[in-house]
Amino acid sequence: MTILVTGASGHLGRLIVERLLARGAAASDVVAGARTPARAADLGVRVVELDYDRPETVAAALEGVDRVALVSSSEVGRRAAQHRAVIDAAVAAGVELLAYTSLFRAAESTHAVAPEHVETERLIAASGLPAVLLRNNWYNENQIGAVTLAAQTGQIVSSAGEGRIASAARADYADAAALVLLGDDQAGRVYELAGDVAWSQDELAAAAAEVLGRDVVHHAVTTQEHIALLEAAGLDVGTAGFVAAMDAGTAAGQLDSDDHTLSTLIGRPTTPLVDTLRAAV
């Protein structure tokens, strides 16, 4: 059984390859697809060129592949079209299973990043491919930038209000993906994956203070104040609005959860936020 991981030079794709090997997959059975193959050359598996924007490379990469991990593109606004290239190639190649890294509770989510995931899920369903959806909540690593900035400012600034985020480490989600890709009877399943412990922005500030060894406070602002601050920091109007909209989704409870599907699947507790921050900062 040959398993292809797309986006294998990125943070999540790389970890999925590593966890496949750790979970017992033979290196000869794992293929790493990357836009720039040299960036994935250290993974110890066969590396092929796979550029979401060049369908001919996608089709070539899927030749002889049985299962595919479609790792969501990082190019917001272009994801659905890029994912379509992989879905079409998977249909043509007759793959037996496609696993897509979607968004937590995508079907009912109003989060700013949800629409492209919903559209990708629709494309997968319409294709008739045997597929499994890995609906990932937020990554602990998403907070590293804010904590790094807090080392200088002593503040975590957000418009997320009291909204909680049930995040986990990328490695936790990668481990789940590896298990599903190596497992039996996965087609048709939908996994809502989240960290064991949800946290607020106040708790993020407390975790930042712990790892930085200095006082850090959460400075709560309104959505409009947040947009103004982001624009003042140099972001264009569209980007500032998008960032604030993501906080609005958090404030609305889109990323809150007490579900333990992820930890049950991987057989261990998910990685605490503070542990990820400590390792990074």
Score class of each variant (00 low, 15 high):
Phe104His: 12
His111Ile: 00
Gly163Tyr: 06
Ala150Arg: 05
Asp184Tyr: 00
Ala112Asp: 07
Ala178Pro: 07
Trp199Arg: 12
Ala233His: 10
Leu193Pro: 02
Asp185Asn: 15
Arg170Glu: 02
Ala160Tyr: 04
Ala146His: 12
Val237His: 15
Arg105Phe: 06
Glu210Gly: 10
Arg214Phe: 09
Ala126Gly: 13
Pro130Cys: 11
Arg189Phe: 10
Val221Asp: 05
Leu204Gly: 08
Ala174Gly: 01
Asp172Thr: 04
Val211Arg: 03
Gln201Thr: 00
Ala178Trp: 01
Gly188Ala: 08
Thr148Ser: 13
Asn137Ile: 00
Trp138Lys: 08
Leu134Ser: 02
Gln155Val: 00
Ser127Cys: 10
Gly94Ile: 06
Ala146Tyr: 10
Ala171Thr: 02
Leu133Ile: 08
Ala206Phe: 04
Gly195His: 03
Leu212Gln: 09
Ala209Leu: 01
Val132Asp: 04
Arg170Gln: 04
Ala126Trp: 12
Asp184Cys: 01
Val216Asp: 05
Leu129Arg: 06
Gly183Glu: 02
Ala107Glu: 14
Ala99His: 03
Ala107Ile: 00
Ser159Lys: 04
Ala207Lys: 05
Ile165Phe: 12
Val147Cys: 11
Ser159Ala: 14
Gly213Ala: 07
Glu210Arg: 14
Ala106Tyr: 10
Asp185Arg: 14
Ala198Tyr: 05
Asp196Arg: 09
Leu204Trp: 07
Gln143Pro: 07
Leu133Arg: 13
Ser167His: 06
Ala106Trp: 06
Asn140Thr: 03
Leu103Phe: 11
Val118Trp: 00
Pro130Thr: 01
Arg189Asn: 13
Gly195Val: 01
Thr110Asn: 15
Ala233Lys: 10
Val216Lys: 04
Ala125Tyr: 07
Ala207Trp: 02
Ser159Phe: 04
Arg105His: 14
Asn136Cys: 11
Phe104Lys: 04
Leu149Trp: 12
Leu97Thr: 03
Asn136Trp: 05
Leu229Thr: 00
Thr148His: 12
Gln152Trp: 07
Ala208Lys: 03
Glu141Leu: 02
Asp196Leu: 10
Thr239Cys: 06
Ala220Lys: 13
Arg170Pro: 01
Leu103Glu: 09
Ala228Asp: 14
Ala151Arg: 15
Ala233Thr: 00
Glu203Ala: 13
Val157Gln: 04
Glu162Val: 04
Glu121Cys: 10
Leu235Phe: 15
Ser200Glu: 09
Gly195Leu: 03
Gln186Met: 14
Leu98Pro: 09
His111Tyr: 15
Glu231Met: 13
Val147Thr: 01
Leu182Ala: 10
Glu210Thr: 15
Gly145Thr: 08
Ala112Cys: 06
Glu119Arg: 14
Asn136Leu: 05
Gly234Glu: 07
Asn142Trp: 09
Tyr139Val: 01
Thr101Asn: 07
Glu116Leu: 03
Ala177Trp: 02
His218Pro: 14
Thr153Cys: 13
Glu96Met: 06
His117Ile: 00
Ala114Glu: 05
Arg135Pro: 08
Ala205Cys: 12
